[in-house]
């Protein structure tokens, strides 16, 4: 098992004729993801590395039974692309695009709720269920199948952590990138809930950062979890009022501080690593404790 995506997921790539779309479609196909179609308005009838390209998502669904999409279209057109795949009934929509206006993101998330669909991102590295399906831009060699569920706001930091886990023989069930924007489709709680219910996951690593309240909300949920949680938070040295790269990574009016997140998570029983390379050790420790129970 895994969460969100697995070997049965049938993927359509929106924006497959652009540089990023083409490049990552190839990498995803090489990984073994079932890419069934591409969409690029005005380019219907073309093919990219043997994948048929259509003008609309509905056509890709009709012909190939696609049930998930990954979006690489430029930010000004991304709202339309997201709404299109939701309207077509896809259950999982991964929005890689960075720079989608927050009002557009709010509309997309409200529509997704009415459709009962999941939007991952925007501004995410995507989702990977190692060995089964890769729906994102992450470097495949950092991952291996295994029992660790990993959820992160940031891409590169999570690659670093996944690679260290994999290097220590700790593979992953599913790795989810929430995305760095202020409004994203999945929060920590949404993913923690799924990982808690996933038989293939026995421990969860969450990688958060300053800004917003998602980590504090996660802490409330963790109190009721049966699986152990190890956390790492970036941004201890960040000054207030400055956006640290991600649109959401900002301490505003005293909220979203590093301390409040660490306190909340520690109070909820999560093990919080001070340094990124301490995570692997904490996971090993918690796994052996859990096994000894």
């Amino acid at each position: 098992m895994a969460i969100l995506i697995d070997e049965k997921t049938r993927v359509v790539v929106q924006g497959i004729t652009g540089n990023q779309g083409k490049f990552h479609a190839r990498l995803m196909a090489e990984y073994g993801t079932r890419l069934v179609a591409g969409v690029s308005p005005g380019k219907g009838g073309a093919d990219v590395d043997g994948i048929d390209v259509y003008d609309t998502v509905e056509e890709a669904v009709e012909r190939h039974g696609a049930n998930a999409s990954i979006i690489f279209v430029p930010a000004p057109f991304a709202r339309d692309a997201c709404l299109e795949s939701l309207e077509a009934g896809l259950g999982v929509v991964v929005a890689i695009t960075e720079g989608i206006p927050v009002h557009d993101a709010m509309e997309v998330m409200a529509f997704a709720r009415t459709k009962g669909a999941v939007v991952v991102g925007p501004n995410t590295f995507g989702v990977i269920s190692p060995g089964k399906c890769k729906l994102g831009i992450m470097p495949a060699r950092a991952y291996a199948p295994g029992p660790v569920g990993l959820v992160a706001r940031s891409g590169t930091l999570s690659y670093e952590i996944a690679a260290a886990l994999t290097g220590a023989g700790l593979g992953q069930s599913t790795v989810v990138g929430l995305g760095g924007d202020r409004v994203v489709g999945l929060n920590f709680v949404d993913v923690l809930r799924r990982l808690e219910g996933d038989p293939a996951t026995s421990i969860v690593v969450m990688v958060g950062e300053i800004g917003g309240t998602a980590e504090e909300e996660a802490a409330e949920f963790i109190k009721g979890m049966t699986k152990p949680v190890v956390a790492y938070l970036a941004g201890r040295s960040a000054p207030p009022g400055k956006r640290m790269g991600h649109a959401g990574a900002i301490i505003e009016r005293g909220r979203g501080t590093f301390e409040s997140k660490v306190d909340a998570l520690t109070g909820a029983g999560a093990a919080v690593a001070r340094l990124p390379w301490e995570i692997t050790g904490l996971v090993q420790e918690r796994l052996s404790t859990a096994a000894g129970d």
Partner: peptide
């Protein structure tokens, strides 16, 4: 990457 950059700063400070 925003996360790894923040992480790098934290590590330096630590």
């Amino acid at each position: 990457g925003a996360g790894i950059t923040m992480g790098t700063l934290d590590v330096l400070q630590e």
